[in-house]
Design a protein around this nucleic acid. Structure first.
Length: 674
DNA sequence: CCGACTTGATTTTTT
DNA sequence: ATCAAGTCGG
């Protein structure tokens, strides 16, 4: 790790202009970024606070910052910015909120909040359809990523459906404004628009960020690339690192074309390829290269390794998905002994989450400890969303979304009719629900008793709000949670008291995290007010028991997507079948290339051994269907794979369609319970 | 307001 | 088949 290879060195030392580092899987790209940060600080006399590195996830940002900080002497890395795109956007908005017309304490709507808002807007139109709702949300996100304002969307709409969506888009944005809120896309879009309109503000940020580095560049979307271009201006003080072969997020707006676009936008671009892989055996790399060669390439790149040849790649065909899962479990048990390995040396990768279920069962059955990635993220949990809504309302009374979520949670005997009347009144006078509560004019619209309850709620919030501006913020919000007797509410609603206790623990964890952020003992803590802390919090990933996961000896189970950036000595990939990998929808959409990259990502996770599995038959939607092997298997180098369980093991045998009827017949006898 | 029933979906996921 | 979310009635 201390010694860089010539290419890596070149990438670190090149500062004469914009630089694109094509970093193959396992080629040490994080080292290049962190070493370059250290180089800029120590050799180029650029102050750490004038350097920014952008990533996509908090985790990546955390790790990168830690590594870079360790690389420089003393505290020279103080003030260094290593953050996600969205966090940078938030910082920009936070500093410039006045110019943008936001009030302090603005809320950040996550996808769920945004969806709820959209749902409400569309419900008024009378058309409600989950498909349309998702489509609209997706479309609005696309528009925002492409800098399309509602007016333009409307004038360019080509169908009535698009027109309707554009109108919803406009109202959605208006609602966000009224709520003093932004959504995730706005965190990028709003700064971009601000920079485009206000040269002074842009100049300020350009001065602040003298050198910019971007990780996982192939995952940037249009808006993110624009932000990068604006910040760089014509100075060329930019290094981006990426791998077009690992672009697996096009479906959520990533534009791998941004890599080739760099050559156009920055003609002096220096392209440096990192092709030496430090992770995998030669066979694994050969297999990966062979597969990905089937994709068209803008940048040619061939990974190589000076590691040993390694074991052949194993492809194991099983009779059905249960046998496949069983085989994985058996292999792990056997190999663990043979190889003197730990459980955490093994990873099971799959295309979609439901594939995990069977494997999970079999691992349990064999008493193999495992950890599964994914699941509901911390901030998607109901209890956290509830408490966050309280906090949002405390710092931003205009947040009607938060207001509606908690006005009657826990129950305060405030029903729909009261809220409708309140809503009508607020809409008419163009004020927020919270503000409306205190208006005298309400008396004629809402009966006395409910009005009394609503008012009591608002005054209570207001008191907390006032106290939260003092140094008593923490006691104030702790009392708030006590006041609403949230714990009792959780017990009332949970299936068991154990679940309720767990949820309450989450709430306390959230409060503790806020407490840490507000800690006055530590002046280096950035967010100093509750307002800052809450908005930051929405963008954070508070993983529960994150440390434990890394230290426990468990088999890792994850989706292929989630595996990106990780590595494991021994990797199993299950379900190498048509319709699974490549996924059925991708076949229909003729988007095989991204699926191939997904397989490529999976393969390149393996350090020492790679086992691919597939099943002949698989239960799908309740019926047994005959599967056919993934086209990707035929794209692997014949001489480096070892097939097992393929009948006579000649490819022709597997193709024999004549056997289908027989197999189907046999499947009928192959009965499971049910 | 809650629970039983129906309905529908069943790629990937971060911020 | 299975599971989650949404709907409707008591």
């Amino acid at each position: 790790m201390t010694q860089l290879n010539p290419r890596q060195k070149q990438a670190v030392h090149y500062i004469d202009g914009p630089c694109l580092v094509l970093a193959g899987a396992g080629s040490g790209k994080t080292s290049v970024i962190t070493r370059k940060i250290a180089y800029l600080i120590e050799e180029c006399q650029i102050a750490a606070r004038n350097i920014a590195a952008l990533t996509f996830t908090n985790k990546a940002a955390r790790e990168m910052k830690e590594r870079a900080t360790k690389l420089v002497k003393g505290s020279a890395a103080k003030g260094l910015t290593v953050s996600t795109f969205h966090n940078l956007g938030l910082n920009i908005i936070r500093r410039e909120y006045r110019a943008l017309g936001f009030k302090p304490g603005f809320s950040i709507f996550d996808s769920e909040d945004a969806r709820a808002l959209l749902k409400e807007l569309m419900l008024k139109d009378g058309d409600l359809d989950t498909d349309l709702l998702d489509l609209t949300q997706h479309q609005i996100s696309n528009w925002k990523n492409d800098q399309v304002v509602p007016g333009t969307a409307l004038s360019k709409a080509e169908s009535e459906g698009e027109q309707r969506m554009a109108i919803v888009y406009e109202r959605y944005n208006q609602a966000l404004r009224a709520y003093n809120a932004v959504d995730f896309d706005d965190l990028i879009l709003v700064p971009v628009q601000l920079f485009a309109e206000n040269a002074d503000v842009l100049a300020h940020w350009q001065k602040k960020i003298r050198y910019l580095l971007v990780d996982e560049y192939q995952d940037t979307n249009n808006a993110q690339y624009l932000l990068v271009k604006q910040l760089i201006g014509d100075r060329g003080s930019l290094t981006v690192v990426g791998d077009d072969d690992q672009s697996i997020y096009a479906w959520r707006g990533a534009r791998p074309e941004n890599m080739s676009q760099l050559k156009v936008d920055f003609p002096s671009l220096e392209v440096i390829k990192l092709e030496q892989n430090y992770r995998s055996t030669q066979r694994i790399l050969k297999t990966a290269n062979h597969l990905i060669a089937n994709n068209p390439h803008e940048f040619e790149k061939t990974l190589w390794s000076d590691k040993s040849i390694g074991e052949p790649i194993r492809i194991i065909q099983c009779s059905n998905e249960e046998a496949e899962a069983e085989r994985v479990a058996n292999e792990i048990v056997a190999q663990k002994l043979q190889r003197q390995a730990k459980f955490h040396d093994f990873a099971v990768l799959y295309r979609s989450n439901h594939q995990a279920r069977l494997v999970e069962l079999k691992l349990q059955h064999h008493q193999i400890p495992y950890a599964m990635s994914g699941g509901t993220s911390f901030f998607a949990r109901t209890e956290i969303k509830d408490v966050m809504a309280y906090l949002r309302l405390v710092i931003n009374p205009d947040d009607d979304n938060a207001f509606l979520r908690i006005i009657n949670t826990p129950r305060r005997q405030i029903g729909t009719s009261t809220l409708e009347a309140l809503g009508r009144y607020a809409t008419e006078r163009e004020i927020s629900l919270f503000t409306a509560c205190d208006e005298l004019g309400l008396q004629s619209h809402i009966p006395e008793k409910p009005l009394e309850r609503v008012k009591r709620f608002c005054h209570w919030i207001l008191k907390i709000s006032e106290r939260s501006e003092t140094d008593e913020a923490m006691p104030a919000i702790r009392e708030m949670v006590d006041d609403i007797d949230y714990e009792a509410w959780l017990h009332q609603n949970a299936s068991s008291s154990k679940v309720a206790e767990r949820r309450m623990e989450n709430v306390y964890y959230l409060l503790d995290s806020i407490g840490k952020m507000l800690n006055p003992e530590d002046p280096a803590r950035e967010p100093s007010s509750l307002k800052d802390a809450i908005s930051k919090l929405v963008l954070m990933d508070l993983l529960d028991r994150q440390e434990e996961e890394e230290t426990l000896d468990q088999v890792q189970m994850l989706t292929l997507h989630a595996s990106k950036g990780l590595e494991f000595p021994h990797v199993f990939i299950v379900g190498l079948e048509e319709e699974i990998l490549p996924h059925r929808n991708s076949i229909e959409d003729e988007n095989i290339e991204e699926e191939r990259r997904l397989a490529y990502v999976g393969i390149t996770r393996a350090q020492r051994s790679l086992t691919l599995l597939l099943a002949n038959k698989r239960k799908q939607y309740g019926e047994v269907i005959e599967t056919s092997e993934s086209r990707f298997l035929a794209e692997l180098p014949e001489g480096d794979v070892e097939r097992e369980g393929f009948g006579q093991s000649t490819p022709e045998n597997n193709q024999k369609k004549g056997q289908e009827t027989l197999s189907n017949l046999m499947a009928m006898f192959d009965d499971d319970p049910n």
